[in-house]
């Protein structure tokens, strides 16, 4: 591999990793703070992508579709928390798994009814349609760079929100002692509703911004759900920082696994087994640190 294609793959890996982080951060927040296992998280990613496609078509602009889509998914998140999730905080995780699995099925069905079962695509929106030439033959799409920049900006904003604001303090405090937070005069139900809706909106936003670079199709939520859980487990449950590191690691392992050729004892290991790479990474990390890279000691 020459330097030019290495650079392209590196950018791809980082962009994929950052997008994964955006999806997984919502999952790890909701899990770490509220103790809710949300299997429907991938569905929100799918809903985001379909919303971007359908709203961009209706409004005529991808850039207007984004804020409208975010508002809609925040509202959806609040509704689902209020209607369903709030009833399960006191219950065992199994109930949450059952409920959110049911949500996956319901969302798939609704998606079929509203948007159909076809595969769609969205054109890359202006002004990011161009590419930046890296070498004489290789170029890198500007839109992908934009995705990376937006996710990095969001990561910084999330860090500041959680670490530096009173709202962030309340959210972190709620993760350690719910009852005490309430007795300090904080409405924890509203706080959790906000956290859940925020997580939903993060996944949906990831779906929206990735729609122009990947197709919009039924079942797209299932793929990202599994990878997101791997990210959460590697990074440490509840750790946003861990999710960032783990997502970038998976981005690198997955991307380079697919473009590297490796033979061991006459067997072609890579790229044939590249799909397994992230699971091997997870197994390795768990052997080294069962609580994940930035997880709390179990």
């Amino acid at each position: 591999m020459d330097l030019g294609s290495f650079l392209v793959q590196l950018l791809n890996a980082v962009q994929y990793g950052l997008l994964l982080f955006l999806i997984a951060s919502g999952l790890t927040l909701v899990f770490g703070i509220m103790g809710v296992i949300n299997l429907a998280h991938g569905s929100f990613y799918m809903i985001g992508a379909y919303l971007a496609w359908s709203l961009a078509g209706k409004i005529g602009s991808f850039w207007f579709a984004l804020p409208v889509g975010v508002l809609l998914t925040v509202a959806l998140g609040m509704l689902i928390e209020w209607l369903l999730i709030a009833r399960l905080y006191a219950r065992d995780h199994l109930y949450q798994v059952l409920l959110t699995y049911g949500l996956i099925l319901a969302f798939e069905e609704l998606r079929g009814m509203i948007w159909g079962n076809d595969v769609h695509g969205i054109p890359v929106p202006a002004p990011f349609t161009g590419s930046i030439p890296l070498t004489e033959t290789l170029a890198y799409p500007v839109y992908r760079l934009w995705i990376s920049a937006v996710v990095l900006a969001l990561a910084v904003a999330m860090y500041l929100l959680i670490q530096r604001t009173r709202l962030g303090m309340m959210i972190r405090a709620g993760a350690s002692n719910r009852e005490m937070v309430q007795s300090l005069g904080i409405n924890i139900r509203m706080l959790y509703r906000f956290v859940f809706a925020f997580g939903v909106a993060l996944a949906a936003f990831a779906g929206m911004i990735s729609a122009p670079v990947s197709s919009v199709f039924p079942g797209m939520g299932g793929q990202v759900l599994i990878v997101s859980f791997v990210v959460v487990v590697i990074g440490g449950i509840g750790s946003v920082k861990g999710a960032l590191v783990a997502a970038i690691l998976i981005g690198l392992v997955d991307t380079f696994g697919k473009v590297t050729t490796l033979e061991l004892g006459g067997l072609r290991v890579l790229p044939d087994l590249a799909g397994m790479a992230m699971y091997l990474l997870m197994a390795g990390v768990l052997l080294w640190r069962p609580e994940g890279i930035f997880g709390k000691r179990l």
Binding site: R172, E179, M180, S183, L184, I186
Partner: peptide
Amino acid sequence: PEGRGIFPNLSVHENLVMA
């Protein structure tokens, strides 16, 4: 409360000002 109920994952300053 009995057993104090501080937030161990917050700093002393954050514990004080959060509410």
